[in-house]
Design a protein around this nucleic acid. Structure first.
Lengths: 206, 206
DNA sequence: AGGATACGGAACGGTGCCGTATCGTATTGG
DNA sequence: CCAATACGATACGGCACCGTTCCGTATCCT
């Protein structure tokens, strides 16, 4: 921006020489996440990443200082692409959001990465933190909006407002928990629906 | 073989030589779980296990063929020691069981091992399977009993009987999910209580 | 054209762990 | 006492990955 003289104060003065290829970053991060999903941190070696990305190791070390930084950065680039359309109805909106969650979790990549990151979260909190900020929190925000709408409309208990996070855990927790502890069993297609209905109405007889 | 007269058919005939020290197995498995909790699978090396257990590597290889077998066996020896006393009341019993769950999860060892195993479950399902059978399933069985009691007493919807597992996920899921995704935040002491009440009564206004 | 930097690829020494073998010692049964 | 096996300790060759450095080539700016 401002290539001519009188360059701006903080403007980076474009170093001479061949510029870095942005395609590389992308290929490296993609390879990192692929390997993480496939074989976990054990299979996540710089050499494997370089090979899968079709890149020399030097190209990686030119950008990141080591495996940890690379992983954190790759995870940080995960973002939430799909924003399912809502219908304005509390119950149906929650079903839509939880449906999106289970659909995403059915995709092998996301389903495999989450458990790895949680496992790693014990000893490398930063990695989990970035994933939480980039992926988890945005999802939860949408659920929070729907829930607050429900409270405003009188469809939900008013005191829920005090702890929306708790209510979100109530909805999301069972899906993720099941996914993590019984990864071989497929999620039933009607799980979100039954979950939302159960949480809204409670388990006691009417 | 067959030292005494009229020896039993399948009786193992006590091999000659110095017998294996059962204390070793115990020390090795304990060291394995400790290391798994502390530094994950990355820190779980045979040499580290041997060092921590105060044992030669040969003593490990004499019993297990490698890291995978050792890990599976160590996890299989995890059992559920505490069985909290119930009070015969549906709501209170559920609170007691979920309280025990969160208390256990507060202990650093259990809290650290679970995420590691879930992460490993993606590529090594056997490890997770043994943990599930030894630790998770027994816990869930107790919850199932309480829930079935509630159904019989008419305190819970009768159609819940079709899918008790679903109801258990509803209760356990939020605790574990929160524990895994926000390991730095301590679990509120009243979480089990609020959780049980919310799940029983539902989120809608009365 | 020429300088500077990035690129893929290959090689390097260093390190940590593997699984095995071999010590000297200890503990069992015969 | 002797044979057999387990024990802790140590040493070994082999391998995979680390992080760095060097190629020859490609791509930018002046």
């Amino acid at each position: 921006m401002n290539p001519g003289p009188a360059d701006g104060i903080g403007a980076t003065p474009r170093p001479s020489g061949r510029p870095r290829d942005p395609v590389c970053e992308q290929a490296i991060c993609r390879a990192t996440l692929d390997l993480l999903a496939e074989s976990g941190l054990a299979g996540l070696t710089i050499e494997a990443v370089a090979a899968r990305a079709g890149v020399g190791k030097a190209t990686i070390y030119r950008r990141w200082s080591g495996k940890d930084e690379l992983l954190i950065d790759a995870v940080a680039r995960l973002t939430e692409p799909v924003r399912p359309a809502l219908r304005g109805n509390l119950r149906d909106d929650l079903v839509v959001l939880l449906d999106a969650l289970s659909a995403r979790s059915r995709s092998s990549q996301a389903a495999r990465i989450l458990p790895r990151l949680l496992g790693e979260g014990v000893s490398h909190p930063e990695v989990l933190r970035h994933y939480r900020e980039q992926v988890i929190v945005p999802r939860r925000k949408r659920i929070a909006e729907v829930l607050r709408g429900g409270i405003a409309a009188g469809e939900l208990r008013a005191d829920l407002d005090t702890d929306i996070e708790f209510a979100i855990d109530l909805l999301v927790g069972p899906v993720i928990y099941r996914l993590l502890t019984r990864p071989d069993e497929a999620l039933p297609a009607d799980l979100p629906e039954r979950l939302v209905d159960a949480v809204l109405a409670g388990l006691r007889p009417r």
